[in-house]
């Protein structure tokens, strides 16, 4: 009995050790680039290619100040916060309304319109640059915050609608009927029932889109001329010359740019795990 028990404990421990070793390996491969980024941010342009140690011999914290001032990060940072907040809010409101309509309402051409939205995901962003720029120019929205925000909302809608529609399809009809009997309008059902019900899916949409907007710069370059309207990623480009790159300052800038998005992820990880672990698709 004892022998069987010992074998069971041993197998369990071995399996656990193997699993944890594998997961630690995966975690290290994920964390190492972040560690390397911070390490390089603490070096100089001369030592970054020479000092091969994991911990730099001489730490230079001045790169962070240099990145903040030379990259004009204060303005870009605020712009990125505004863009991310507005775009994510816009995407959540519009996509949840659209997904609710696709899932719960009957109207002519519903499926065609839905598949058109889904098909829009297949068009890569660079492929739509020229028509988008021409359209924004005609609408006099080039070089405006509103123009950029509208474009970015458009970019994030397809996937968000797909995720939320799948989620709303699983919502029990009985709940909706009960709410209607209690006097809820369609908007009321969306607000009081559908949105709270879809919280994990919304968390996934928030983090995916926040990440997308925070890291976006090509569309910003295309639509914005005024550097005071540019997002944070624009500041990072200052350190990438045509022929040479100031790696330590660039890494310091990247470190600062990564912190807010890591914070958002940490804050919402509970919902994200729920959303991705099956509750989104039922």
């Amino acid at each position: 009995m004892n022998g069987k028990m010992n074998r069971y404990v041993f197998r369990k421990m071995a399996r656990s050790t193997l699993t944890h070793t594998f997961l630690m390996g995966v975690a290290i491969t994920c964390l190492f680039p972040i560690f390397w980024m911070v390490r390089c941010a603490l070096m100089t342009n001369q030592t970054v290619f020479v000092d091969e140690g994991l911990i730099p011999h001489h730490l230079d914290f001045g790169n962070f100040a240099r990145a903040w001032t030379e990259g004009n990060f204060a303005v870009f940072f605020l712009n990125s916060v505004v863009y991310t907040t507005c775009v994510v809010t816009g995407i959540v409101i519009i996509s949840s309304l659209a997904a609710f309509a696709f899932s719960r309402l009957d109207f002519p051409g519903k499926n065609v319109i839905f598949y058109m939205f889904v098909a829009a995901m297949m068009i890569p962003l660079p492929g739509s640059f020229v028509p988008l720029f021409v359209l924004m120019t005609k609408l006099h929205l080039v070089n405006t915050r509103l123009g950029y925000i509208l474009c970015m909302i458009n970019v994030g809608l397809s996937l968000s609608i797909l995720i939320l529609k799948t989620f709303f399809d699983k919502m029990p009809h009985e709940l909706e009927d009960a709410a209607r009997i209690d006097g809820c309008s369609k908007i009321g059902i969306w607000w009081h029932m559908a949105l709270p019900f879809a919280r994990p899916a919304i968390a996934v949409i928030v983090i995916f889109n926040a990440l997308n907007v925070w890291n976006e710069y090509i569309l910003a370059f295309l639509l914005l001329d005024n550097s005071n309207l540019m997002p944070l990623q624009r500041g990072l480009m200052v350190f990438q010359g045509a022929n040479g790159t100031n790696y330590p300052v660039l890494m310091a800038g990247l470190t600062m740019a990564a912190i807010p998005i890591i914070m958002v992820y940490l804050f919402m990880q509970k919902y994200i795990v729920k959303g991705l672990s099956g509750e989104v698709v039922g």
């Binding site: 660079p126 370059f221 480009m237």
Partner: peptide, 17 residues
């Protein structure tokens, strides 16, 4: 407008608009 790839895109788009 850097990097140069993004700049080239902007020039083409601006020419068309």
């Amino acid at each position: 407008f850097a990097p140069s790839e993004a700049y080239s895109q902007k020039i083409i788009a601006a020419a068309q608009a």
